[in-house]
């Protein structure tokens, strides 16, 4: 298949922006975490696309690292969510404003 890197990058950028929008507009922490996953995916896509452009394995290697990181991040994040829910009986991010400066 003939391919242009631009269009894949555009897709990655679009997914990333959607992820950001999700993180900002959602109040529920679970949704925010999901949106973060979307963003991570988008950056993984960008890496893989770049790797395939030069036919090098590095892009995929980076994607694997991102995957590992995402797994760790999700496990910690979900544990935190559980804990927050137990402490505050709510998943509303706006209720967690105790660190106000």
């Amino acid at each position: 298949m003939k391919s242009s890197i631009e269009i894949v990058m555009l897709l990655a950028g679009l997914l990333f922006v959607l992820g950001i929008a999700g993180v900002i507009i959602r109040k529920n922490i679970i949704f925010m975490l999901l949106s973060v996953e979307v963003m991570l995916n988008a950056s993984g896509l960008a890496f893989v696309a770049a790797g395939s452009r030069w036919a090098q394995p590095d892009g995929q290697v980076m994607f694997i690292f991102i995957l590992a990181m995402a797994a760790a991040e999700v496990s910690i994040g979900l544990a935190l969510i559980l804990q927050i829910y137990h402490q505050h009986k709510s998943l509303d991010i706006d209720k967690l404003k105790e660190m106000k400066g």
């Binding site: 391919s3 990333f16 452009r53 036919a55 892009g59």
Partner: peptide
């Protein structure tokens, strides 16, 4: 943000290439 990304990505003049499986 997306518009900016779009602009930045499209101004780069990238030639199509033959895909190779890694």
């Amino acid at each position: 943000l997306f518009v900016e990304l779009f602009y930045l990505i499209t101004i780069a003049d990238v030639a199509p290439y033959n895909l190779q499986t890694v």
